[in-house]
Design a protein around this nucleic acid. Sequence first.
DNA 1: GTCGGTTGGCTAATTGCATTAGCTTTTAGG
DNA 2: CCTAAAAGCTAATGCAATTAGCCAACCGAC
Lengths: 190, 190
Amino acid sequence: MPRAGLTPDVVTREAAALVDEVGLESLTFAALASRVGVAVPSLYKHVPSIAALHRRLSALATEELGNALAAATEGRAGEDALRSVAAAYRSYALERPRLYPATQRVPLPDDAPHVAHADRVVGSVFAILRGYGIDGDDAVDAARVVRSSLHGFVDIERSGGFGLPRDIDASFARLVDSLHAALDGWTGGR
Amino acid sequence: MPRAGLTPDVVTREAAALVDEVGLESLTFAALASRVGVAVPSLYKHVPSIAALHRRLSALATEELGNALAAATEGRAGEDALRSVAAAYRSYALERPRLYPATQRVPLPDDAPHVAHADRVVGSVFAILRGYGIDGDDAVDAARVVRSSLHGFVDIERSGGFGLPRDIDASFARLVDSLHAALDGWTGGR
DNA sequence: GTCGGTTGGCTAATTGCATTAGCTTTTAGG
DNA sequence: CCTAAAAGCTAATGCAATTAGCCAACCGAC
């Protein structure tokens, strides 16, 4: 029986591609095994459980999002960075709408790679705030505002929740305008 | 065999209570049947499938959220309404963190009750905007900004995604401040 | 009160999924 | 080449969702 050339990373990437087709909730070891050409129990040689696979998918999605955001901040600061990061965030969610929710899983504390990817995502937001001169507790509050707005928008969008007849791109632009105004006029804590 | 007194609404409410304990993804007909005291196949007399039960849960959660928001707007306008609705939105999500995600499901078009509940939630947001004198396409954009911010914040919060040592209530207050500022200074479309 | 039809219980059976146990083959390193 | 580890496999187990069909409870009409 020749080796299928699987590794945990290969299995995870194939699983992500399958999620793009069927969604996270319909991901099964049966479908994945069929996809990579092995019997179902063989998957356990590479990934200990379906739950572990979901955690790996979260780490992968978070890494990809982090990469996209980091690239978006390069050579940019302040408003320019905000707009670039916001666009990258939404682009990622629209490219992989079924995988995107996996970015929201909080890493297990001992999963160093996943923790690092998550920190990187948040780090990109803090980089924006430095351009606005916001730091300390204010930076935490502001980062939460930015993350909430972006996550909220793309989550509702990908779920089809914006049903009224109004251009969604235009609404997103107004959201980012609002974020810029909020960060630009950010005042000390209360 | 005496009747257990079940109806589709009773089953749905019991399912919601079970979701509060175990989460949406761990809801099973087996656990629910045990909870209401009937055999598993008996549940099919009241709810046609697990998928249909999830849709009913979404309608119920959306109704509850709609009730909370409607109550929060009563006798209030503008900034007062915004703060009240924002608080009510977050309170609901914190009271039923495991059920809250069900509010995000888009209703099937022919599910009139669910559609009505969803419209009511959005209606409460539009009521706020009327107090700020925002209408037309601007109102759609602004409603999407408000919904995104609120949903995004509570979704990250309930998932444990705000890990940095900073009071979350304070961050939420800053989010609402930002929303108020955005709505207060809302200018015409672009 | 009785009867008939409908509703709501039940058990048995089926299919599919996640997982474990243990055997066999392939592969890598000494 | 040999050995141990890794990676395939089948069989088996337990659980979940669902269907089929039987029986009893219930309700409305007479």
